[in-house]
Amino acid sequence: MTKTEKVNYIITELENLYPVVEVPLDHKDPYTLLIAVLLSAQCTDVRVNQITPKLFKLADNPYDMVKLSIEEIKEIIRPCGLSPMKSKGIFGLSQMIIELHGGEVPADFESLEAMPAVGHKTASVVMAQAFNIPAFPVDTHIHRLLTRWGITNGKSVVQTEKDAKRLFPKALWNKLHVQIIYYGREYSPARSPKLSVDYITRNIGSEKVRKDFKP
């Protein structure tokens, strides 16, 4: 298959599997999505969704969040891991949203990425899912799958994002990145992948990639 054929195949199959998708992190607005995505770093979405109700019950907006101490935030989010860094980030970005953006999460990459603990991937998710601005967030799931499928060489997430944006239609970016995450979790996990289940890799993956899979 050419890359164009692979791209068309991926789009068709994922649309058949997941015609309707939602962000797997529970949230109600841009602010709560930003916090949830930040917490999801090196943590499962399931765990994040268990913790955020406790945090958002106390503070679901930046004004209430800064009333909490960093230590209080850290204790609540401890099960998500990296709590010292994440708690400082949550407190700091809440201050910035109040002081620089009138209490509203800004809808531009430069402002988002200027916030503590907010990287490009987190900003991309917020831009795509909170503001419906085309972005292609690349996490480890997407990086792994697009490498397996021969869409990118897999050297870095930066290169994977560039390749994805170049090859997939811009109008599909926001939905497609969620569809790929869903597919990876259901059919192509990082550990013990099986070609009998992961039919996209079976059909378009390279011979080298397929050798790494179990029957």
Rank of each mutant, 00 (worst) to 15 (best):
M1E: 06
E5I: 01
E5M: 00
E15Y: 11
L17P: 02
Y18G: 14
D26K: 03
I35C: 08
A36C: 07
A36L: 08
I51Y: 00
L58I: 07
K67Q: 15
I76V: 11
R78L: 13
S83L: 06
P84C: 03
L93H: 01
S94A: 02
I97N: 02
H101D: 14
G103E: 11
E104V: 14
S111Y: 08
L112H: 06
L112I: 04
M115W: 05
P116K: 11
V118Y: 04
G119Q: 12
V125K: 06
A128R: 08
A128F: 05
Q129F: 02
A130I: 05
N132V: 09
I133Q: 13
F136G: 11
P137K: 13
H141F: 06
H143G: 10
R144L: 14
R148D: 12
K155N: 12
S156D: 01
V157H: 04
T160G: 08
E161R: 13
A164G: 06
R166M: 14
L167G: 01
N174I: 06
L176D: 10
L176P: 05
Q179H: 00
I180F: 00
Y187V: 11
S188T: 10
R191K: 14
P193T: 04
K194S: 05
S196A: 06
V197S: 05
K211A: 02
